[in-house]
Design a protein around this nucleic acid. Structure first.
Lengths: 214, 214
DNA sequence: ATTTTTATGTGGACGGTGTTCACATCGGGG
DNA sequence: CCCCGATGTGAACACCGTCCACATAAAAAT
C-alpha cells in the first residue's frame, strides 16, 4: 500500500542520462492507470526523481508529453492488431483467410480497448487547445498505422471477391465506426462492467454486422 | 472580447434564491464550450456571483456537479432524437414509416454529437474515481432515454416485418456502437474537421450499414 | 590544457484548481 | 419571539502547470 512508488533511485550524477525516456515511461504508466487526465507533469518528474521543471527541457508543455503518450498508445493498438493477425491460422482458401484477417483486425482493436482502457482513451485524446492536433502517425512493428492495417485487410476482401468493389470506398470508416463505438461503450459507456467473455462475444457480433452491412 | 462574462449582477440579498440552478446553468454552458474538463467549480461559482464554497451546499463535489451536467446533456440527446422523429413525414406505409423513424433516431444522435460536441462528450463522461457511475437515467421530453427511444424504433422494425425477430436481441448495441463510433470519430477522431455536409452523408452511410448488417 | 559555449537540471515563485474548517447571516417552524 | 437549520463567506491547504533566474557539467573551441 505505498501507492506513490518505489523510492526514487537517488541518482548521484547531475545528469540523468535518459530523462526523456524515463519521463515518457512514467507518463505512459500513468495514462495506463487513469487515462490522459492522470498524466500529471509533476508526478511524472517525481517518479523520474527529478525537479518538475526538468520536464520542460524535453517537452514543450504537458500537452506535448500527453501527445507523445498518445502516439505510443496508438502504436500499441497497431501492435495488438498485428498480434491478432499473426494468430490467424494458415489456410489454403484465400477468401477464408481474408475474412479471418479482417475479423482479426477488428478483434485486436476491441481487445486492446478493453484490456488497456487508459491507453486506449489516451490514444484518442485530442487536447482542448487543439495545439497538438498534428496527425503524426503512430505505427506498429510492421510500420503500418491501425488505419492502414484496416485498409489493407479491406483491400484483401476486395481482391478475394468477398467485398464488391463498389462498396470499398469509405468502408474503412464504416468498419472503424462500429468497432470504435463498441469499444467506447464498453470502456465508459453503458456496456461498461461487462465480463471479458461477453465483451468478446459482443465484438464478434459487431464484426458480423460490419461484414453484412459494409 | 470580454471572455470572462457580463458583470455578475451584484446580488443584494444574502441568499441567492436559485443558486443550484444558476450553478448548473453555468456548468452546462462551460461543458458546452469545452467538454467535461472545462467545468471548473470555481469558475462556475464565479459566474453565479458567489463564493467557491457555496457550491458545496448543493453538490457533494465537482464530480457530482459534472454528473448532473452529464444527465442534462443526455436528456438533450433524447430531445434531439425526438425532434428528428417528429420531423419524419407522415406515410401510410407502416414499414416505410418504421424505417424512416429508425433512421431518424440515428440521425438525431449523430446530429447532436456534431452540433454540441462539448455536451456530447460530457454526456458520456465517466469520472475517474467511478463514484458517480450510477446509471440514473436521463430522459427527454417524452420521458424516454436515448436507449429506450432506440429500442422502441427497433421494436417497430420487427413488428413491421423489416427486421427478423431472431435478429432483434442485442440489436440496440450493434446500432448504438456504429452510430456512437462515427460520432466520436467525427468529434475528436480522425474524421474531425469534416464539413457538416460530409458529416450528414457519413451518418447516412453508417445507418445504411446498420440496416443491412443488423 | 584551458576557456567558452551549450545542454540539462534546480529552486523559487505565481496563479489556477478542488476541498475543508470555522464562522456569518438569515428565514421559517417551535 | 426566538432559535435552529439552511445557506453563503473567508481563510487556508495541497496539488497542479508554468515561468524566471541560476547552477552544473559535458562538449566544443581555442
Amino acid at each position: 500500500m505505498t501507492p506513490p512508488a518505489d523510492p526514487p533511485p537517488k541518482r548521484t550524477t547531475y545528469r540523468h542520462g535518459n530523462l526523456r525516456n524515463a519521463l515518457l515511461d512514467a507518463a505512459v504508466e500513468l495514462a495506463r492507470e487513469g487515462g490522459p487526465d492522470a498524466v500529471a507533469l509533476r508526478e511524472v518528474t517525481r517518479r523520474a526523481g527529478v525537479a518538475p521543471n526538468a520536464a520542460y527541457r524535453h517537452f514543450a508543455d504537458r500537452g506535448a508529453l500527453v501527445h507523445e503518450v498518445s502516439q505510443a498508445a496508438m502504436a500499441q493498438v497497431a501492435r495488438t492488431m498485428e498480434a491478432e493477425l499473426a494468430a490467424v491460422p494458415a489456410t489454403d482458401d484465400p477468401a477464408a483467410r481474408a475474412r479471418a484477417r479482417f475479423r482479426a483486425v477488428g478483434t485486436g482493436y476491441i481487445r486492446f480497448a478493453t484490456r488497456e482502457p487508459g491507453l486506449f482513451r489516451t490514444a484518442f485524446h485530442v487536447p482542448a487547445d487543439m495545439a497538438y492536433a498534428t496527425d503524426t502517425t503512430a505505427a506498429g512493428a510492421g510500420g503500418l498505422t491501425p488505419f492502414e492495417i484496416l485498409s489493407a485487410s479491406l483491400d484483401d476482401l476486395v481482391t478475394t471477391g468477398i467485398l464488391p468493389e463498389d462498396r470499398r470506398p469509405g468502408a474503412e470508416f464504416l468498419a472503424w465506426s462500429a468497432v470504435h463505438g463498441l469499444s467506447v461503450l464498453m470502456i465508459d459507456g453503458p456496456l461498461r462492467g461487462i465480463t471479458p467473455d461477453q465483451a468478446d462475444s459482443a465484438a464478434q457480433d459487431v464484426i458480423d454486422m460490419i461484414e453484412r452491412g459494409i
